[in-house]
Design a protein around this nucleic acid. Structure first.
Lengths: 146, 146
DNA sequence: AATGAAACACGTAACGG
DNA sequence: CCGTTACGTGTTTCATT
């Protein structure tokens, strides 16, 4: 991974819509060289995609929570992520070391919706849940590159 | 929030680099109308920005963890997010309800780096830490809009 | 608020160094 | 792997409805 590539990744991590022309200006490359670098980073999978960052509250999603889940029957197939993948309120799903098997980040309209969602998660993944409600988000998904 | 705006947000949440021309085609709007809608969504803060999604492992960040922190002295000023903001290994910082005060998501090169990071967090925020290591990420930051 | 058209900027591919 | 050139497409603005 070259320093030039890291510069480009840093720029795109901060502004995913930056033009190749501007990337070139920032890095001292020509437009086509910048574009070539970005394409290679995409093809190699270093850049997995581009996303608009949205304001949850303005979309009516007022409640964020982390849900730690433990399967009721540890001898059962450990397929919680697939079983839960269809639930679109589940924003993230991590397999974790420690007492719970998975940690989910969820986003719902209200507490009532959270209650219903937890019931659904328990039913679909045959698990118990331990929920931590988010009061506020100081910062989130900051670029992991300088 | 109109249905048309939600469609546009859904498209940009999945492909942050989609052109206004294509957004117009998908939504049945002219290019300039699509652009106008997007600009309004940006100005109103519904769209907070655009980011490239990167592959952590390919950047050399092989360890992801969640760190729950509790201040040693509850009577002290509760300014952990600001005190920790300068640590770029901290990707996200949530204020949470429950026993810990904050939940951090961190990303480091190796376990040795995690150890050093935890020491730094404890020192800077004057807190204890409880760490949950991520084994794998099934999915993350999925679009919170259909 | 949306459209259509015109001017301009950008993205893209081909080629040469 | 980078730069230049050239062409097609996307973006942006404005007049109009």
């Amino acid at each position: 991974m070259e320093a030039l590539d890291r510069r480009i990744l840093s720029l795109l991590a901060r502004d995913g819509r930056m033009s190749y022309t501007d990337i070139g200006k920032e890095t001292g490359l020509s437009t086509s060289a910048a574009q070539q670098r970005v394409r290679r980073l995409e093809q190699r999978g270093v850049i997995k995609g581009y996303r608009a960052v949205l304001d949850s509250a303005r979309l009516g999603h007022f409640v964020t929570a982390f849900v730690a889940i433990k399967p009721f029957d540890p001898s059962q197939a450990d397929d919680a992520p697939e079983r839960l993948a269809g639930i679109e309120e589940i924003i993230s799903c991590y397999s974790v070391a420690g007492e719970p098997s998975y940690l989910l980040k969820v986003q719902v309209e209200t507490m009532a919706h959270l209650e219903a969602l937890l019931a659904r998660i328990r039913a679909e993944a045959k698990c118990s849940t331990h929920t931590t409600t988010v009061l506020s988000t100081a910062y989130e998904n900051r670029p992991e590159i300088s």
